[in-house]
Amino acid sequence: MSATAKTPILELAGLRKSFGRMEIIRGVDLAVVQGERHAIIGPNGAGKSTLFHLVSGHLRPSAGAIRLRGESIEGLPPQSINRRGLSRSFQVTNIFPRLSVWENVRCATLWSLGHRYSFWRDVERLDDVTRRTEEILTEIDLIDRRRTPAGVLTYGEQRALEIGLTIAGHADVLLLDEPTAGMSHAETERVVALIRKVSEKRTLLMIEHDMQVVFDLADRISVLVYGEIIACDTPARIKANAAVQQAYLGTEAA
């Protein structure tokens, strides 16, 4: 795999997180290289979402380092990490329910286009914002639903909007937390195509339970079991890995 030769854009070193006496993440080392699609798999309760919370600033690590393009980001608030170019989606849909679809995406473009907290400029006249919002809505195929309040979209549409919010800024590292969870077969196919498209010029780290999706999309796979990464390799070798089969795939296949 040529990807391993490149420099890591996101690096986790000795990362730990405890809640009280429970240690959920127990020393994770991971290097995600620029441009790759990297999947994290593992059984329920392995700590996958916690890992995303640590990387995205939602939780503070108990120990260890997180580096984005070589800069330490561990313990920074979510907005600072987002501004450095790392954006995430959520496992449970996390959108702005009372705002229209258009407004949802528009809000997600504002910071990266430099409009910050401006309370003196008419948002309708910011052509860069309008263009970018249209682009994103076209990309996630919700342009016809732009006037609908996000809270009344169908589940599949909300999941697409979730991805839209994640890619609307300038982030080039995307963390997608179970983007296909709870979807029908047809919806899953559509989302996989969308993920393939949006990850073309970006780096992708994603948690996914659907093995079909994982093997379809990922360049490399890391297997997280009880807060530790037990294997990190190409899909083919992960499939063949005995430890992984025992810990995870075996139960999945049965």
Binding site: P77, Q79, N82, I95, F96, A108, L110, W111, H115, S118
Partner: peptide, 20 residues
């Protein structure tokens, strides 16, 4: 304005606002 719309976003979902 951008601020006005982001204020609405904070009202709807402050957690997600931090992640944008």
């Amino acid at each position: 304005t951008p601020f006005g719309r982001i204020a609405n976003a904070v009202r709807d979902n402050p957690q997600r606002t931090a992640f944008i």
